[in-house]
């Protein structure tokens, strides 16, 4: 079942890339999707299929919209810091804690942190995430966690866990 969903996903991407419904294209696409699924099917994240659940899908859309808003805000933030003559930066590496358990959710969390204002994820050790922050505003670990991680954590928990 899982393999079949992956096969359909790969075939869909192939059809989008070739953008034709000719039977020869479909045949080659099915063959290549089958081979790719045989070779790499077992390293897919296990619960990628569960995103098809409508409740999870709804929260994924909510997450996407919030994420886009933060990305645009991040860009104006960086533009302000770069173009200012005095360069108002106060960088450093902080350590925050996350409650997410699955690999997929952690990947999304780290990538979202990299693309949101002033933060860049560097490493994951255990439950702790090391983050380069361009403008540190507090010294307290709990408050840092609140500012950086909790923007996305609850939504990602509803989507992936």
């Amino acid at each position: 079942m899982k393999r079949f969903v992956h096969f359909l996903l790969l075939l869909g991407i192939w059809m989008l890339l070739t953008w034709s419904l000719h039977w020869q294209d479909l045949l080659v696409g099915a063959f290549i999707a089958f081979i790719a699924d045989l070779m790499f099917g077992d390293i897919y994240p296990v619960n990628a299929v569960r995103i098809l659940n409508p409740v999870r899908f709804f929260w994924f859309v909510v997450y996407g919209v919030t994420f886009l808003a933060y990305v645009i805000k991040a860009n104006f933030d960086v533009a302000y810091r770069v173009l200012n003559i005095n360069m108002p930066i106060r960088p450093g590496i902080v350590k925050v804690r996350t409650g997410l358990k699955t690999d997929m959710a952690r990947t999304f969390l780290a990538n979202s942190i990299t693309l949101t204002p002033g933060t860049l994820s560097i490493d994951f050790i255990g439950d702790h995430l090391y983050i380069h922050w361009i403008n540190i505003t507090s010294d307290d670990a709990v408050k840092e966690t609140e500012i950086i991680v909790q923007r996305f954590e609850q939504m990602l928990e509803r989507v992936f866990e």
């Binding site: 930066i89 106060r90 960088p91 450093g92 590496i93 902080v94």
Partner: peptide, 8 residues
């Protein structure tokens, strides 16, 4: 000018 480096 960095403030802290908890990773190191």
């Amino acid at each position: 000018g960095s403030v802290m480096d908890k990773y190191a």
